[in-house]
């Protein structure tokens, strides 16, 4: 089970003269949760957006599920997009639609799916994302930050994608909510056999969910490996990141 679902090779992204990534390589294996970390402004979210095709790379290739993202168009691209789900930082829910209708949006592209089946499936996804029944009819403006993220996750999972991209899923959540979200991600990965590309700053999330961690710095992926391997990397920034004062709490919890 070491098939790569995402292969990024020699990726260069730039905005004007500002180079964000240079010759960046990254793999996501099937069924794993990959945590992508890096300092602010190192282009974690830009990398995510490049992989899903929202930003065009200047050089290099991005292959998702064996297909080159930038070379696809039309129906081939559409069918590839059905195989991944993206959860944006604040959920990016459509504000004019209720939570259940938001989750139904991707399902509307399924031909001949009966409306009541679609509604029941949307309710199932909302429930799988850990939201109570009463959330179905609520509008995004009525939801707390954590509930918006859960609703965004429910929408990302609407078509049972093979890959899920999560942009800072636990940012802005309290520790209890963040912990519940971590367990939700692992639980869904196990149940649905997802591959998860997780951009985060949260060391607890890295400890709790990630099979591997990729560190972005100096415009490329500096190092990848398990959490235990990260602790032994002697690059100063990586060392500071995983051994700094904020890194100790999860260590203590484990000992």
């Amino acid at each position: 089970m070491t098939e790569n679902v995402i292969e990024v090779r020699g990726l260069t992204t730039r905005f004007g003269s500002h180079v964000v990534h240079e010759a960046l390589d990254l793999d996501l294996r099937r069924g794993e949760i990959l945590g992508v970390v890096g300092g602010s402004g190192t282009g974690k979210s830009v990398l995510l957006r490049t992989i899903v095709g929202l930003i065009r790379p200047a050089k290099g290739s991005v292959r998702v599920l064996g297909q080159d993202v930038s070379a696809l168009s039309g129906q081939a691209r559409e069918s590839l997009e059905r195989r991944w789900g993206v959860m944006f930082q604040d959920g990016a829910l459509f504000s004019a639609l209720s939570v259940q209708e938001n989750v139904e949006v991707p399902m509307r592209s399924v031909p001949n799916l009966a409306p009541d089946q679609r509604q029941s499936l949307a309710q199932l996804k909302v429930s799988m994302a850990g939201l109570p029944w009463s959330a179905n009819d609520k509008y995004p403006a009525e939801l707390s930050g954590g509930m918006k993220k859960r609703a965004g996750l429910a929408r990302a999972l609407a078509l049972d994608p093979e890959i899920v991209f999560l942009d800072e899923p636990t940012a802005g959540l309290d520790p209890i909510g963040a912990d519940a979200f971590d367990r939700l991600i692992v639980g869904l990965r196990d149940a649905l056999n997802l591959s998860v590309f997780l951009v985060t700053h949260d060391l607890d999330t890295l400890h709790a969910c990630c099979d591997r961690v990729a560190v972005l710095a100096e415009r490329k992926v500096l190092t990848t490996g398990t959490m235990a391997e990260m602790l032994d990397v002697d690059h100063p920034w990586v060392h500071e990141y995983f051994h700094g004062p904020r890194a100790r709490a999860p260590d203590k919890g484990k000992e």
């Binding site: 309710q123 199932l124 909302v126 429930s127 799988m128 029944w133 009463s134 639980g187 196990d190 149940a191 649905l192 056999n193």
Partner: peptide, 18 residues
């Protein structure tokens, strides 16, 4: 067994209407 597990988790997550 994997499909059975998925079925179980779907049953476990089935929403209970208010």
């Amino acid at each position: 067994p994997e499909q059975g597990k998925l079925l179980d988790s779907v049953i476990a997550a089935s929403p209970i209407p208010d």
